[in-house]
Design a protein around this nucleic acid. Structure first.
Lengths: 319, 319
DNA sequence: TTGTATGCGTTATCAT
DNA sequence: ATGATAACGCATACAA
């Protein structure tokens, strides 16, 4: 492997001059530049980027923490992040951590160790305090509401939108409303449960713990939801499902069983995934790709702000 | 930032001893080790990983090239890769390159520059010769049949399976068969077209160029397929669709229009995605997660082999 | 078992 | 405009 020292020797200049040519610095004469360029050409030279990183203290690498990549929510978020990364010539280090907290901490470690310049945490499991400790080592951006915690974030207000969806169903006459989430852990789920409990409180409605169904991430989980529904003494008349693909699974299951939607069961999906449009599912439109892009840009520029992304309910035919 | 030099000074040993402690080398006395450990504790020391990389010439980073991450095919492949990476404590650098060849070359560059130790190319656009040139810099594993090109790979035989699907439809009485692909570029698509042409040749069937439909990646593209079908003078009686989610889109569209499947239109999907099971779609089962895992392991161990993953047709109710 | 000295490849500082 | 040299932080061959 040839290095700049070799190049310097070959082209009869110093290493500094070679470095200047490599980095397009001004103040280097045309002849010398040509000589260096020629040497680079001849030797098929390649810069050792690790040396550059060590010297500069930066890596042009951004970490992305997410539990899984094969659900629409995270896939679209990642799509938005990756798109902006591509535009800005930044590389992404993927931490697909499958809800393992220790791996989340590992990502924080990598920031500390300067292997990555910044970090986007799409879904958090560790304590906020731990994240706080690490912001000194690089930019960290969260995808949850952190306005009062002085941590950078781009987020949607899950409490607000969930409450809104519940109100919508209530206006339509529903009093027994269940819902599904991906995982019970995570700040989004907490916010949703809070909204749910506040809603019940507001209208003096009873709380049934089995109305909250977790582990609903994939299409086929729609089947599971319907099974659970059957096992309930008092069945809900409406469901809020936090992914359209799960909602679609429910619809297909209902079709098989002859349950008519929305007459016998109302369904609100989430994300406004393409499948929601095709199957006419009433849903919450969340601009996930845009959200991902904003996450990237905020991490990229190191802004310490909190940006809320607005969402809206799209009325279709399942309520 | 404290470094090993500081630690050495603090604990009254040499930098080498500190390094040994850091790397769990044997032959270091308990007292000195304790002293170093204490110094590490006190100073909240962190190793600068870039310096380690420079010194070692390795980064523990593996690159993954793929066009998009939000289609089931690539999402599941990535899932398999990420799973193995997690197990083996390896980090992934994601090149979500959106079919841009120059970005593919950039990944090759990063291998050359030692920013990544190895590279998995899930979908290729650049010349094989270019890849050949780069294997000297690190392990590269492809996800396509490369048996004769002496390039490492884990693959499925798209020609064979496509031909088999065509034969299956022919046995069922279909003579006008169309198909869809994600992109026309890419080796998989070429193989499929070859199988298609050979099939037509074998049974002396006519070739209609509009029977090959590209840009079918997402659920909503099912709508597009049906539109194209309507515009044809002679409509196919059967379709091979290279993603179950597109096939699902087609089924929903057909349901809306009152076209009965398989009576009026037969459909074979691909990948055996969860949606295929729920909607009873006849499909080609491809163990994508396993395939992804094998891609990782081969890149990880640097094996120079060619592993074929077997697939099978799953008969359900759409043919 | 421990320490010294050198290398890794580049950038940055400071002369000239 | 150019060059010498000192960082950057760590690993390791070699000597002791």
């Amino acid at each position: 492997m040839t290095n700049i020292k070799d190049l310097a020797k070959m082209s009869g200049v110093s290493v500094s001059t070679v470095s200047r040519v490599l980095n397009n610095h001004p103040y280097v004469s045309a002849e010398k530049k040509a000589a260096v360029l020629k040497a680079i050409e001849c030797t098929n030279y390649n810069r050792n980027i690790n040396a550059v990183h060590l010297s500069r203290g930066k890596t042009q690498l951004m970490g992305v923490v997410l539990p899984v990549t094969d659900t629409p929510y995270f896939a679209l978020l990642l799509k938005g992040i990756a798109k902006r990364a591509l535009e800005n010539d930044y590389k992404l280090v993927l931490f697909q951590i499958d809800y393992a907290e220790e791996k989340e901490i590992e990502a924080l470690q990598m920031l500390k160790q300067k292997q990555i310049d910044s970090l986007i945490i799409c879904s958090r499991k560790c304590e906020l305090a731990l994240i706080q400790e690490h912001i000194q080592y690089g930019t960290i951006v969260l995808c949850e509401k952190t306005t009062e915690k002085s941590l950078p974030s781009v987020f949607i207000d899950h409490y607000e939108i969930f409450f809104q969806a519940l109100e919508y169903l209530y206006q339509k006459g529903h009093k027994k409303i269940g819902y599904s989430v991906g995982r019970k852990t995570g700040s989004n789920s907490s916010l949703r449960e809070q909204a749910y409990r506040d809603f019940l409180e507001k209208y003096k409605l009873p709380f049934y713990s089995d109305y909250i169904m977790d582990d609903c991430l994939y299409f086929e989980d729609g089947e599971k939801v319907m099974q659970r529904l059957r096992s309930m003494d008092i069945q809900p008349t409406a469901l809020i499902i936090t992914s359209d693909q799960v909602a679609a699974g429910i619809m297909i299951e209902c079709q098989k069983e002859g349950i008519s939607i929305p007459e016998q069961l109302a369904v609100i999906g989430f994300n406004n995934e393409p499948i929601a449009k095709m199957m006419n599912i009433t849903t919450i439109d969340i601009p996930l790709v845009e959200l991902g892009g904003d996450l990237f840009l905020q991490a990229y520029h190191g802004y310490n702000s909190n940006k809320q992304i607005s969402v809206k309910l799209i009325e279709r035919e399942t309520v």
